[in-house]
Write a protein that binds this DNA or RNA. Structure first.
Length: 426
DNA sequence: CGCAAGTTTATTCAAACCCA
DNA sequence: TGGGTTTGAATAAACTTGCG
């Protein structure tokens, strides 16, 4: 059912093994050395990075597997049996749940090797959910409640959205669930406990992303959809990853363009940018959901020669969104690393600021600086990205893409065409 | 875990507006 | 002035991120 796009056990052990790094060692994103020296050099510069991504990589990559429903059910049953066993032992106890930590101290960064992309992933630090700890008991119950629901879903072989789960849980167990956020986190807890993907649990997110442009896609037993004739709303990217997996894709595009904001996406779709320059436009309307990242990843695998270019605001959040496409994220680190893509930064960048009128510069808020700070300390930015971010912070100002509209609505696509023709992306 | 922030959409309600 | 439409604000819903 799942194939080449989704690495399995074998991939993770061979893909990140010491041997396969060969003489290249690690291609650090911060030091562009090309040979054996890079190991030494990078070890002295960024020891943590090297440690995590080179020397202990096999053991260190902790991930969620994509499993058929029967195996997920088996894992839930094992969890129940474990629980019963300690309860039934000579010294009865309620066992804690041990799950993979999703805190930044358990995150690692893997530098891109030849033909591979960089990504964030999680290692093997654990945290617990315990009924016995005063502040923790509800979280413990929540995990079991969600697991129970998952088990029912899996038996029926259905898919539910997180929203649906939320409504169900809030009516069934209002003592334990009060917000969508709690449900989403608990779902991630269950993933970290069972180490299987969200999709495997029968849970998906609501649709969010859109695609438009030079792309023909076909769902099983459906008509072929031509994404160049869909109007500005485009094709809605379903939250169902297994359906995305089965999409049949054809394209004569030369570029894939990732757009941060829906408003910009609609502008470009309406102006038919893809007629000017053969491309596929994709957006997730803000921080990308898993489905959109997955589709982008599938596109990049299906059409490996197409550069992926990102159009984001000139502010730290814009860069953070770009990085989420490029490297994945910590909070969903058990599966997000799979869908990391080699995204290039098209705009807005420092070079473009001359096009921006004075009044469109907005002072940064403390929040912006906070985001900038966390990006800076993440160790994942390559030199050029660091420079951009530094100048952003030093200027203390931010710019929305919409600022380009002072030159007219048509300016936006002309600007993109020019940037692409000049190969002005990093 | 709660909160704030980023990106959205949809719905509701009231004020503002226009026309007969 | 009554009745209809347009606008804008507020609220809720959704998916994320990260901080303390």
């Amino acid at each position: 059912m799942y194939n080449s796009d989704q690495p399995t056990r074998q991939d993770s052990s061979s893909g990140y093994s010491l041997r396969s790094h060969g003489r290249w060692g690690i291609l650090s994103s911060r030091s562009n050395h090309r040979d054996e020296e890079s190991q030494l050099d990078c070890e002295s510069v960024i020891p943590d990075l090297c440690k995590s991504s080179l020397f202990y990589s096999d053991q260190n990559l902790c991930y969620a597997e994509i499993l058929p429903p029967s195996e997920v059910r088996a894992r839930i049953e094992v969890a129940v049996l474990k629980f019963l066993k300690t309860l039934n032992s000579p010294s009865p106890a309620i066992s804690d749940l041990s799950l993979v930590s999703r805190r930044s101290n358990n995150s690692r960064f893997r530098c891109g090797l030849l033909g591979d992309v960089s990504s964030i992933f999680l290692s093997y630090a654990f945290c617990t959910r315990s009924l016995m700890k005063a502040n923790d008991a509800k979280a413990f119950i929540r995990v079991w409640k969600v697991m129970e629901l998952c088990y029912q879903i899996l038996i029926q072989e259905k898919q539910v959205t997180q929203r649906e789960l939320f409504y169900k849980l809030i009516s069934d167990s209002p003592d334990y669930f009060t917000s969508q956020d709690q449900v989403n986190r608990t779902v991630q807890d269950v993933i970290a406990l069972l180490r299987c993907s969200r999709q495997s649990l029968g849970i998906m997110a609501s649709t969010r992303g859109s695609v438009v442009g030079r792309l023909l896609l076909q769902e099983p037993n459906q008509e072929v959809v031509d994404c160049s004739v869909l109007g500005s709303a485009g094709y809605a990217v379903t939250g169902d990853l297994s359906l995305l997996q089965k999409l049949d894709l054809h394209s004569d595009a030369r570029y894939i363009i990732v757009v941060e904001k829906d408003a910009i996406f609609q502008r470009l779709a309406e102006d038919r940018l893809f007629d000017q320059i053969p491309c596929i436009l994709i957006t997730a309307k803000g921080y990308p959901d898993m489905a959109t990242r997955f589709l982008l990843h599938r596109l990049s695998k299906s059409f490996p020669d197409l550069p992926i270019l990102a159009l984001v605001d000139w502010n730290p959040a814009g860069l953070a969104i770009l990085c989420t496409y490029k490297f994945g994220s910590i909070g969903m680190g058990l599966e997000a690393y799979r869908y990391a893509c080699n995204v290039k930064w098209l705009g807005l960048r420092g070079d473009d600021l001359q096009l921006i009128p004075e009044h469109a510069f907005i002072p940064m808020k403390p929040r912006d600086l906070q985001v900038a700070q966390s990006l800076m300390s993440s160790n994942m930015l390559q030199d050029k990205y660091q420079e951009e971010l530094t100048s952003m912070v030093q200027g203390g100002q931010r710019v929305e893409i919409e600022a380009l509209y002072v030159h007219g609505y048509d300016f936006l696509w002309k600007y993109i065409v020019r940037k692409i023709v000049q190969a002005s992306y990093i």
